[in-house]
């Protein structure tokens, strides 16, 4: 790319995103080389980065102010709904195993897609709820931001991981590889190593100075998400997991993927 061929708006945005996400070094070398020699584009990237950072910070603040009360109320309603449905299901049909209503069902479609529903400090996917139902103990007393350990019964996670528990999931592996070089957050810094070995570690740790709301998602080695936690603190305790390979993702409230790591339980 010559100096006369200036960057397009999208390329400028791409560079700004890389700077904001802390992954400038991984950006296409053509773009980086152009910015080394072209003062016009470099200055434009500077401006766009500046504005995008400001906008993102404002958007996050606005989002919290506008939506937080609604989310708290909706979470409460959803939690009560789930407790009621599970209780009804267990009491009325003890012999017949039926799939309980997902906590997501009580919310509009757009929210089902975008928002991990926090019913009791955690969201467990439908399939896992169904698998765990006979043994499920609904812990409705847990607060929104609980730091309590989120346990998954050994038998349950074994059924998730299956026999070939160490065979990696291709998609998650690619994501994991992408995050071995850099993380994408602005404030959030991941302290946990890329691969967490259990035994040896029992938690995932990051720094979250602005107490940003973060989602921690756990996946088995087939790419099935089986647990989502909502956290404002600087880490979570690992759930109880059977032997196998797992992945975890850290996602911010704008649904930006901040990190993908592996958990190897042996």
């Amino acid at each position: 790319m010559s100096i006369d061929n200036h960057l397009s708006e999208e390329q400028i945005a791409q560079c700004a995103d890389a700077i904001i996400g802390g992954s400038y070094g991984e950006l296409d070398s053509q773009l980086r080389n152009h910015l080394t020699i072209c003062d016009d584009c470099a200055a434009e990237v500077l401006s766009v980065t500046d504005i995008a950072i400001d906008f993102k910070a404002d958007a996050a603040r606005g989002w919290l102010v506008r939506f937080k009360p609604w989310i708290v109320a909706a979470s409460g309603v959803a939690a009560v709904g789930v407790v009621f449905l599970l209780a009804t299901s267990i009491l009325n049909q003890p012999q017949v195993h039926t799939e309980p209503a997902s906590p997501r069902a009580s919310l509009p479609l757009a929210e089902q897609v975008d928002t991990p529903i926090d019913t009791a400090g955690q969201t467990i996917d439908k399939g896992v709820i169904a698998a765990a139902e006979p043994k499920a103990k609904v812990k409705s007393e847990k607060s929104h931001n609980t730091k309590e350990e989120q346990n998954i019964p050994k038998e349950q996670s074994a059924s998730i991981a299956g026999g070939g528990a160490y065979v990696p999931d291709q998609t998650l592996e690619i994501l994991f590889e992408n995050f071995t070089q850099a993380y994408r957050g602005e404030d959030v810094v991941i302290n946990t190593r890329g691969v967490v070995n259990v035994p040896g570690s029992d938690s995932l740790v990051w720094s979250n100075p602005s107490k940003e709301e973060l989602y921690v998602e756990f996946f088995d080695n087939t790419g099935n998400r089986f647990l989502t936690l909502t956290e404002r603190s600087s880490g979570v305790k690992l759930p109880e997991l059977s032997n196998g390979l797992y992945y975890w993702k850290l996602i911010n409230q704008d649904f930006d993927l901040l990190f993908v790591g592996k958990i190897v339980v042996e």
Binding site: I12, A13, Q14, F55
Partner: peptide
């Protein structure tokens, strides 16, 4: 139509509006 999804949509819009 010219957005290829290589950047975040909001950052792309920032770049467009900035120009």
């Amino acid at each position: 139509s010219s957005f290829e999804g290589k950047a975040k949509a909001t950052t792309y819009i920032v770049a467009i509006l900035n120009r």
